[in-house]
């Protein structure tokens, strides 16, 4: 890029100032929240000296602790299941033509674009009807709780995972997979040693996105949760409606920290997977470029 297109003079000053203001806008509220979570004053609007009291309150608050564990369990469970289902769906859509493909593709996009409130309403009505049927047919008096929350989270996470994995698959040539199959690798081995190492960054990215979305969701969870179990955001949302307290400040800062750790992880992972260090892929590439030797030699290469 030549330097002449760089904004100059007053334009440059204005643009720079504007950018700093945008960052101020982004981070000022977060900064104030963090600072006041350490303030030793019951009135949230006053600075009363440094304290860790509110963090201790958080640790000792039974309901909050329960909500944290519900959140973590729901997030992990829904992420694992949606990563498996979403990756399979991505593979099917990117690599195969099959009947019903278009309908499936559209169905897979819907949970992404549907408004949270609509999906929340869907879950409320569905579980109301579903539990009625369970009771009248099996005599099982099911309650909304961990299970229904997890089911609803998987329902939106599958789509996000599959979009991320598909993006990765779409940018990937099928040549390596065809080569592996030509060289007598089974379908499973081709997936395990050729496809999977290549889509791994996409799968990991999808998993992190699913984790974040599951940990963030308020609206859908609120309608899928029952008296038995609520997640941390839903519980905190209930608290906020009753007013601002130092305890919520401390809880929010901890939730913030969790998000930042997740971002850091995803960035670190992108960096890590950007470099080489995937022997199986290298072997496969060599196998494609070099004329085949013997079957065993190539198998050794793939298995490296």
């Amino acid at each position: 890029m030549s330097s002449t297109v760089q904004p100059r003079g007053s334009t440059k000053i204005a643009l720079t100032a504007h950018s700093w203001l945008v960052y101020l806008f982004f981070f000022a509220p977060i900064f104030v929240l963090i600072v006041f979570s350490f303030s030793d004053d019951n009135n949230v609007g006053r600075w009363g000296g440094f304290t860790l009291e509110w963090y201790q309150d958080f640790v000792e608050h039974n309901q909050l602790q329960n909500a944290v564990w519900v959140s973590v369990r729901v997030a992990l469970l829904s992420t694992v299941i949606s990563v498996v289902l979403g990756t399979l769906a991505a593979l099917a859509l990117e690599r195969f033509k099959f009947r019903g493909r278009k309908v499936f593709d559209a169905l897979l996009y819907l949970p992404i674009i549907i408004p949270d409130v609509t999906m929340a309403v869907m879950m409320l009505l569905f579980f109301a009807e579903f539990f009625d049927i369970l009771e009248s047919v099996f005599g099982w008096d099911a309650q909304k709780g961990l299970g229904s929350i997890t089911i609803s989270h998987i329902a939106f996470n599958i789509s996000f995972v599959s979009v991320v994995v598909r993006a990765r698959l779409a940018g990937m040539s099928e040549v390596l997979e065809e080569a592996a199959l030509d060289l007598y690798a089974t379908r499973w081995k081709t997936f395990r040693y050729v496809t999977f190492p290549q889509i791994m960054p996409g799968v990991a990215g999808g998993a992190l996105l699913a984790l974040t979305l599951s940990l963030d969701d308020v609206v859908i969870t609120q309608f899928a949760a029952g008296p038995g179990a609520t997640t941390l955001p839903v519980f905190v949302f209930g608290l906020i409606r009753r007013g601002v307290t130092p305890l919520i400040n401390a809880t929010s800062v901890l939730m913030l920290a969790a998000s930042v750790i997740l971002v850091a992880l995803s960035l670190a992972f992108q960096q890590f997977s950007g470099r080489g260090g995937r022997p199986s892929l290298r072997a496969a590439r060599e196998a494609v470029s070099a004329p085949p030797k013997t079957n065993t030699q190539i198998k050794e290469g793939i298995n490296q």
Binding site: L85, A89, A92, F98, L107, I151, A155
Partner: peptide
């Protein structure tokens, strides 16, 4: 290939039909 694609998509397909 069509059968394979359908089978791969089936778990997610069935899930989304039932729960979405």
């Amino acid at each position: 290939a069509s059968r394979r694609g359908f089978l791969l998509s089936l778990p997610a397909y069935a899930y989304l039909v039932l729960f979405f």
